[in-house]
């Protein structure tokens, strides 16, 4: 802006055209990111408006918005969303921390990893929710059990991702570190941990989706805990497909927001910091 005025040209015109260009870029970006959503909405609306499907099978976008608004007003949906998000982030963070710690501690000792890794890989086939009865026995029919299940659902894929990441650290990097005298905890903390960060990001995204699934499944069963899972189950129980779809919509929107606002930024930051240009 200051350079514009300095060159004595027509600063206003230059600024305006630049603003227009900026606006056009934003518009293009919006079109690129939103065209599919818009298309679905239009087809959805058409199908319901033309009466091709009865409303009890597929409520119209308006019905779902109405259910959403109603649920926010009468069923404290926002409170449920908040409780769920809090639980999700907490459980996920605990799961990630435990998985990375275990990966670093045991990944350094082949004997430990050889023993633990097959068990984790086998556990991947067991749905986390299968452990809910056990969690209820140990922690009670309450939010703690749900949190533990969420953390455990996060932990399994994350621990495997950590092992995978550790094996991808270039050998010369490890040798360089050890030759400079890095050992033990210092070595794990300052060399292995940062070295695996780029490959961990994929694991973080994967385990995030696992956390969601475990959490929803657990909330549906442990219904004394307020949360989106409970609202979803309520929708099922009272045959209210509009409520079910409203909750799905919320989860979808949260998923998109998280992907765009958290993971995409994290990835960009890691790519820049770790010099992984051309990764995208």
């Amino acid at each position: 802006m200051t350079t514009n005025t300095a060159d004595g040209g027509a600063p206003g015109a230059a600024g305006a055209s630049r603003a227009a260009r900026g606006a056009r870029r934003v518009a293009m970006l919006a079109v690129r990111k939103l065209w599919f959503i818009a298309l679905i909405l239009v087809v959805w609306w058409l199908v319901t408006a033309l009466g091709l499907v009865p409303a009890y099978k597929l409520p119209s976008p308006g019905d779902v918005l109405g259910a959403l608004e109603n649920a926010i007003r009468e069923r404290e949906l926002l409170g449920a969303l908040w409780d769920t998000l809090l639980r999700l982030v907490t459980g996920w963070a605990i799961g990630v921390a435990c998985a990375v710690a275990l990966g670093l501690l045991t990944g350094a000792v082949p004997f430990l990893e050889d023993g633990i890794r097959p068990v984790l890989a086998g556990l991947q086939a067991v749905p986390t929710i299968a452990f809910l009865p056990l969690a209820i026995l140990w922690f009670g029919f309450n939010a703690t059990a749900v949190l533990v299940i969420t953390a455990f659902g996060t932990f399994k894929p994350m621990a495997l991702a950590t092992y995978g990441a550790i094996h991808q650290v270039p050998p010369t990097l490890k040798m360089a570190g050890r030759a400079m005298g890095a050992r033990g905890l210092f070595y794990q903390r300052t060399l292995v941990l940062p070295a695996i960060v780029p490959s961990l990001v994929t694991g973080l995204k994967l385990s995030w989706s696992f956390a969601w699934r475990s959490l929803m499944a657990a909330e549906i069963i442990v219904s004394g805990t307020t949360g989106l899972g409970g609202v979803l189950e309520l929708g099922r129980e009272i045959n209210a497909i509009d409520i079910v779809m409203a909750v799905i919509l919320i989860i979808l929107v949260v998923g998109i927001l998280f992907e765009q606002l958290v993971f995409a930024r994290l990835e960009r930051w890691v790519n820049r910091r770790w010099g992984l240009v051309g990764a995208r």
């Binding site: 298309l39 679905i40 959805w44 058409l46 091709l52 597929l58």
Partner: peptide, 10 residues
């Protein structure tokens, strides 16, 4: 594709 999906649903 979407129209097909809708038709199936209907």
């Amino acid at each position: 594709l979407l129209a097909l999906a809708a038709a199936l649903l209907a």
